[in-house]
C-alpha cells in the first residue's frame, strides 16, 4: 500500500484513465491512503454556497479536494484505505455499471470473508456518500464506491474507486461532514452509527494482524488483476 498526498493520488487516477482511454494501457490498480481531507465530486463545487463551505472546512483543518468520480462528499485520512481500479469495458453489455462495481468490490469482499466477516452490497440510511454498491457489514457501511466512464474507440475506459474504513469515523469527522452540508445549505445529516471500520469487526488482540492480512490480500489481487496478461 502506498501513502500518497491526496492531490497526487487523484492525479494518478486521472493520468491512468487517460492512458487507458488513449490505448497506452489496459488496466491499472493502486491501493493507497492519504492525509486528512474532504473530497467532493466536481459537481458539488457548482453549488451556490460551496465556496463558503470550502473555506470553513479548510479553516477547520479539512482541506477540500475535487474528484472526477460521481457520488457525494467523503472524508479521507490515515484511517481510510482506497482501492483504485481502472480498466477497459466492452460496449453493449447493458450491465457495465453493475459489473464494474462487482469487479471493484470482489477482492474487498473476498478479503473480508477470509477474515471471517460476512458482507453484502446495499444502501445505508445516514451514511456519507450513500449508494447501492456500498459494501456493508451488519447493516453498516464499511466501504463506499464510485466510478467514471470515458468513451474510447469501440470500448469504454472505466475508473472505479472504493474507500474502506479501517476505523469507524469519529465524531469530529462526522461533525465536519454535517457542518459542510449545513454551510452549503444542503439538508443532509450523516450519522456515525451508520458506519463500521475493520478494527471494530475483529478481536482486540487480532486487529493489527487482521488488518495486515486484509490489505495484503487486496493488494495481491489488485496487482495480479492489473498485470499485463500473456496471450
Amino acid at each position: 500500500m502506498r501513502e500518497l498526498a491526496l492531490a497526487d493520488a487523484l492525479e494518478w487516477e486521472a493520468a491512468r484513465l487517460a492512458d487507458i482511454a488513449g490505448g497506452r494501457a489496459g488496466a491499472a490498480a493502486l491501493l493507497w491512503s492519504c492525509e486528512r481531507a474532504l473530497v467532493a465530486p466536481a459537481s458539488l463545487s457548482r453549488h451556490p454556497n460551496f465556496k463558503r463551505a470550502y473555506s470553513r472546512a479548510n479553516e477547520a483543518g479539512w482541506p477540500v479536494h475535487l474528484r472526477a468520480t460521481g457520488g457525494d462528499l467523503v472524508p479521507q485520512g490515515p484511517e481510510i484505505v482506497n482501492l483504485s481500479l481502472l480498466f477497459r469495458a466492452p460496449l453493449g453489455t447493458a450491465s457495465g455499471l453493475e459489473d464494474a462495481y462487482r469487479q471493484l468490490t470482489s477482492p474487498i469482499r473476498e478479503a473480508l470473508s477470509q477474515a471471517g466477516i460476512s458482507s453484502c452490497h446495499g444502501s445505508v440510511a445516514g451514511a456519507f456518500c450513500d449508494g447501492r454498491f456500498n459494501i456493508t457489514v451488519m447493516g453498516r457501511k464499511f466501504a463506499g464506491t464510485a466510478q467514471r466512464w470515458r468513451p474510447m474507440a469501440g470500448e469504454m475506459a472505466v475508473q472505479t474507486h472504493a474507500m474502506m474504513l479501517i476505523r469507524t469515523p469519529d465524531e469530529n469527522t462526522i461533525t465536519t461532514l454535517n457542518r459542510f452540508y449545513f454551510d452549503c445549505g444542503i439538508k443532509r445529516v450523516i450519522h456515525a452509527s451508520a458506519h463500521v471500520g475493520l478494527q471494530d469487526l475483529v478481536q482486540l488482540d487480532e486487529k493489527k494482524a487482521t488488518q495486515h492480512r486484509f490489505l495484503c490480500m487486496i493488494a495481491d489481487r489488485a496487482h495480479f488483476w492489473s498485470a499485463p496478461r500473456l496471450s
Binding site: 460521481g70 457520488g71 464510485a146 467514471r148
Partner: peptide, 13 residues
C-alpha cells in the same frame, strides 16, 4: 456533457 447515475459519472461526447 457529464451525467451521473449510481455514483458513476459518464462522459458524453
Amino acid at each position: 456533457a457529464e451525467i451521473m447515475v449510481e455514483k458513476s459519472q459518464f462522459e458524453v461526447t
